[in-house]
Design a protein around this nucleic acid. Structure first.
Lengths: 192, 192
DNA sequence: ACTTTAACTTACTAGTTGGTAAGTGTCAAT
DNA sequence: ATTGACACTTACCAACTAGTAAGTTAAAGT
């Protein structure tokens, strides 16, 4: 059957996602995967011949997740304030589960990445920022944001804070992230 | 002479700083150091027996740099805007040299770090944030910031943006970072 | 019954990693 | 002249890395 193969492939990608979050691209190994799946290293190489192939598969999965999330966000809510709130809480949930942003996790090993993966990752990063810019642009057009707000700048600020909050959580506890996002809400949203 | 030894030690720490920025703690090796210094690997082990020892020396160097910088910042300027501007431009200089924040660079490999280094790094990270909180607290007391500003939250937001800007520079070019910091200035400072 | 294919395992290679033991040359102090 | 510390080098080691070649097993297709 066709899906048996796809199941195992998918399983490997899932596991790799978690391992990259935990250790990064350089530090995770085919042996880590093999041991956790109860198979041999060579079996992983059968599904993904080179580490780079697996890395690209992970990036594609990430791209799909990002697209799905922004699709859900823009199509399940009409109200733009709720769209933003959806994104913030969705990301905030992951902070509580100790899930570091995967794009950040890959970005840290950028210099050690094969060229093809570097490009993939750069385009992923641009994509995420572009989605965010669109969102703030739309929100501003509807008068939800303060007049002085530049959508490009706040998109970058917002994403930096999401990624930063995840890092600070480890050393500063759980209270900091909500404070940060409440503060951002106060600073950005038009008070009525 | 005493300083011959300290020179070489210092030289190794300097090089390690750059290598960690480039590749991270896990990915840099004693062989990298040895080749760049034109000596053998064993010679590096003579100065820093374990990789962890070198890691701790790097953290201590970092701590001193951080203390020096905040000392300079708080004692050469009175105005908060100028203090922050000093901090941002100091960091911005490093952006141009493709130097990402070293604390961030180490933080990304957190899970792979020896326990002692994890603690050292956590305290370094807390220290940086605490300095920043003090700064914003002082500024708020002087009425420079908006009433709704929480010093703890904005300190974390500001540092997240500094670290985030460094990462976005690679994929988004040089224009984004200034936009982010001008926006933050607009959002935080009391307009008159 | 035969062939093919997917999904492996066994057994390996070559290179790199952090780390060590033992020896070498240089130099300053005694 | 001898000692002793310093800053190394040579020559290792065991563990781990990505990656490969060849053989195995089970199931599906013909």
């Amino acid at each position: 059957m066709e899906n048996r193969k796809e199941d195992r492939k998918s399983q490997i990608i899932d596991l790799t996602l978690h391992l990259i979050q935990e250790k990064g691209y350089v530090a995770f190994s085919y042996d880590d995967l093999a041991k956790k799946l109860g198979v041999t290293k060579a079996s992983i190489h059968y599904h993904f011949e080179k580490k780079e192939d697996l890395g690209i598969a992970v990036c594609n999965r990430l791209e799909q997740q990002l697209k799905d999330m922004f699709y859900t966000m823009t199509h399940t809510y009409v109200d733009l304030e709720k769209k933003l709130h959806f994104y913030v809480t969705k990301k905030a949930e992951r902070i509580k589960e100790n899930e570091i942003c995967l794009i950040s996790a890959l970005q840290k090993d950028y210099e050690s990445l094969p060229a093809h993966l570097q490009e993939k990752l750069a385009s992923l990063s641009r994509m995420e920022l572009t989605y965010m810019i669109d969102l703030f642009q739309e929100a501003k057009a509807k008068g939800l944001l303060k007049e002085t707000v530049d959508p490009v700048a706040v998109a970058a600020i917002f994403l930096s804070c999401v990624k930063g909050a995840l890092q600070y959580k480890r050393v500063m506890g759980n209270d900091l992230a909500p404070k940060m996002f409440n503060q951002l809400k106060d600073l950005l949203l038009q008070s009525q």
